[in-house]
Design a protein around this nucleic acid. Structure first.
Length: 205
DNA sequence: TTGCTGATTATG
DNA sequence: ATAATCAGCAAT
């Protein structure tokens, strides 16, 4: 199945909804990344999680701080943070300006991997399958060279990243599963994780 | 200023 | 099951 198609650009109005509404809608959408060499990498979002106000797992649960500031900004920005001192996580800011609400991008499916991109993939014991290269929030940021320099960067055509809708037909054919979020200590009961069924890139747990 | 924690990953 | 590795945050 070819998940990557000609698409319509996602605008900020579409993102101006609570993250638990946007997160399932982003599954099946395309993340487009313009790398520093101006090459374009397109991939399909196959796993997302929502973080929202009143959610104890949300970085903005306690208060606004320098780290979480962009979560409070307008929709359509990227919120990137460093986790465990060595990986980055990519979020899409959603909901109205002032409401800290984001969608974490947990896994991507790439259609193909150009040779030069393998330089972004660290040497490992065994060569991973293409379907596992962006399987996990830290891995996808490493692969697409996403770091703190992209925190607060607006999404858009011509910018480092933007989002596109799939065709209507494809969107309707998607089998999306809803479950609880993973890797967190608090807010574990909220069913705010969505992923594509039968997708190799999705986290196993 | 110290100490602990974490929306992770690769390896044993 | 655990090391790697560090910014943020709460407590001192």
């Amino acid at each position: 199945m070819n998940l990557i198609q000609t698409n319509e650009i996602i605008n900020n109005t579409w993102l101006e909804r609570p993250s638990p509404e946007v997160a399932p809608d982003l599954v099946g959408c395309t993340l487009v990344r313009r790398m520093s060499n101006d090459q374009i990498i397109r991939s399909t979002i196959v796993e997302t999680e929502a973080y929202a106000p009143g959610d104890p797992a949300c970085h903005a649960y306690r208060s606004r701080t320098p780290r979480n500031a962009v979560m409070f900004g307008p929709p359509g920005m990227s919120y990137v943070y460093l986790i465990y001192g060595m990986y980055h996580c990519l979020n899409i800011v959603t909901d109205a300006d002032g409401v800290p609400s984001v969608v974490l991008i947990r896994a991507l499916q790439l259609e193909s991997v150009p040779d030069w991109l393998w330089e972004y993939i660290p040497k490992q014991k065994s060569k991973p399958k293409i379907s596992r290269l962006a399987a996990g929030p830290g891995k996808l940021c490493r692969l697409l060279d996403i770091d703190l320099s992209l925190n607060g960067s607006p999404l858009g055509v011509g910018r480092p990243m933007w989002l596109e809708h799939p065709t209507r037909q494809l969107q309707e054919d998607l089998q999306i599963v809803q479950k609880t979020r993973i890797g967190i200590r608090k807010g574990t009961e909220l069913p705010w994780r969505w992923y594509l069924a039968n997708c190799d890139a999705v986290s196993k747990t």
